[in-house]
Design a protein around this nucleic acid. Sequence first.
DNA 1: CCTGTCTCTGACAACGTTGTCCAGGCTCTA
DNA 2: TAGAGCCTGGACAACGTTGTCAGAGACAGG
Lengths: 375, 375
Amino acid sequence: MLDATSSYNPMDSRIPVADRTGHRTVPETTRRTERRLPGTRYGNRPTMKDVAARAGVGLKTVSRVVNGEPGVTPETERRVQEAIEALGFRRNDSARVLRKGRTASIGLVLEDLADPFYGPLSRAVEEVARAHGALLINGSSAEDADREQELVLALCARRVDGLVVIPAGDDHRYLEPEIKAGVATVFVDRPAGHIDADVVVSDNFGGARDGVGHLIAHGHRRIGFIGDMPRIHTAAERLRGYRTAMEDAGIPVEDAWMSLGVTDPERVGRAAREMLSGPEPVTAIFTGNNRVTVTVIRVLAGHPRPVALVGFDDIELADLLQPGVTVVAQDAAALGRTAAERLFRQLDGTLLGPERVELPTRLITRGSGELPPAD
Amino acid sequence: MLDATSSYNPMDSRIPVADRTGHRTVPETTRRTERRLPGTRYGNRPTMKDVAARAGVGLKTVSRVVNGEPGVTPETERRVQEAIEALGFRRNDSARVLRKGRTASIGLVLEDLADPFYGPLSRAVEEVARAHGALLINGSSAEDADREQELVLALCARRVDGLVVIPAGDDHRYLEPEIKAGVATVFVDRPAGHIDADVVVSDNFGGARDGVGHLIAHGHRRIGFIGDMPRIHTAAERLRGYRTAMEDAGIPVEDAWMSLGVTDPERVGRAAREMLSGPEPVTAIFTGNNRVTVTVIRVLAGHPRPVALVGFDDIELADLLQPGVTVVAQDAAALGRTAAERLFRQLDGTLLGPERVELPTRLITRGSGELPPAD
DNA sequence: CCTGTCTCTGACAACGTTGTCCAGGCTCTA
DNA sequence: TAGAGCCTGGACAACGTTGTCAGAGACAGG
């Protein structure tokens, strides 16, 4: 499952067990004696039982105080509070969860938290979760289907109440038992594969079509498209938008104008340079996401002729470049917020069936998309 | 504690209780009958007991199969696996955690996940956690001390094994009982207040001193400093670096050159414009963090004379602006990685006492810091 | 003084898992 | 063939909490 690089690996399901000589590793409870708090049991945290004993009351009375339930005299409450304070007691939510069934936590599986697109999305999900008293567990799939599944199932084992998933894989049937068991699930940015589930996406098709249309309106005909791997739904949709815009304008698309694949700077840079060379180079480029846009901007900065550019996704400082970068912006925070809200409505029971919600994109013109063709 | 905007609020400790008429709300276990899986108990997920019953074996045998423990015949294992498959059983880690004591999860409390500085940091922590088989729970404090404490204590109640905290508040004595109880703790970016704990920081002082020194070396004397609120440790350290560099160069600093406070664009923009006006305007500005830098770049873009600029924190596309933005870069990912590694070493027991680790910063020259004074 | 009601409190079971321990059946050897 | 030892499987307690229920006082009304 996961690599262990040290002795700490609590979820390891392999067997540390006694070896053939019968020796056993020292039980965990014996560590850190010197750090133990007076009044607590060896190496462990104080429990309600400890508090009850110290306060001279019953277990349930402590529970009542901790949870603010009624039916405790002020005097008793004071004694309990005092004991809690003195022992540094903190309720164990694991036990609580086990008893109550809900964990008050939701999981978010995305591609890469370091990507500036996902940071705001995650934050938005967190805010909604917070408003509902839930915590957020994040996981990065690194665009790997197996890792996505591993993460999702780990989250399910934790019994998160709900999942917000930005799919990396394209088959999510493995989630069916979980959904049946009541795990609320919303997919974001890309639809789920082979299951019927709630999904919140941007209007990738329309956004790309409008962005490319914008270039066409400014006189371009030879327009390049550099995007992500076509198995990624958003990439495919944006490509479809490109094709549609071109078709609507009656421009036959040449293969040399399109480049789809991994979005590392090397491949993208090569693709851009190829499109820009030869006897009939493109006069404009439409880029399929923020990473591609940044790379292409770098290429264009070193290019002799001006080349028009429209990028999908807004990027910071885009307005300060020369020329400013025209983009089709999607609202990452709104995606996250909408998804999380639907998630909690599923948990409330106020949501009927699975639905597909599409959020609009916005064309922001800043100059790069308005350059005329330099033929 | 937290606002509930709906009926879902599992961790609410206020009393939903029976009202005076004796009516009760419907127990949770009765929801979603239509979604229940055949073979499971009403509204609940299958447990090992269910699997054991279906496979015709004992409870512990199922546990053994699930955990890959030895001592189960292939035939028995097959039967158990079959039952697991058929019922869609997934081990309940809450119960496991309760029994084992470790949750295999760590908490990360930072200021704002949407900030491009924290995304990579969080991702780095996650990668280390993953290598140790642990999940990461994120929380944004929004630079609010109370919210930080609330988050940290909520994470402790979940019994996270460790905490990585980017402090918002300046008193962390509330964490003492937790640390004594064995919660590994590492502070990042800023030191903890009033407690002795592990901390990983950048060399804010040295970085700022070098950045300002760079401006001085290019002939500037009237150098402005725009930074965050001085109660934030990093802001104070960077200010100290600025003062030291000026002092070392024998330049008396004027009050009008320094501006400290919240880093919203409005205040920062006003501060920058003030420094740049009057009879003796600054000829260079040192900015105290990425947000400030971006705002100041915008101001400078509309300013008639060229003004030198060095910023703390690297920003994306800084190299593509005209001129390129010279920055003092800190390595957010390294901060996160180092902190997380120390955390797990605490859990391993291979770390001795609390320590302060300082990571170097790097001056990246791109042009804006090398502009001569425009006197 | 007794009875009924109300308030406060605590004993106990249950949540789902894992660790301990023991029993029964098997193989192997003396 | 009997005894020793191993392998497999299961009964049971425990983890820390919450829900249920019933008991113990207090107090008022008859």
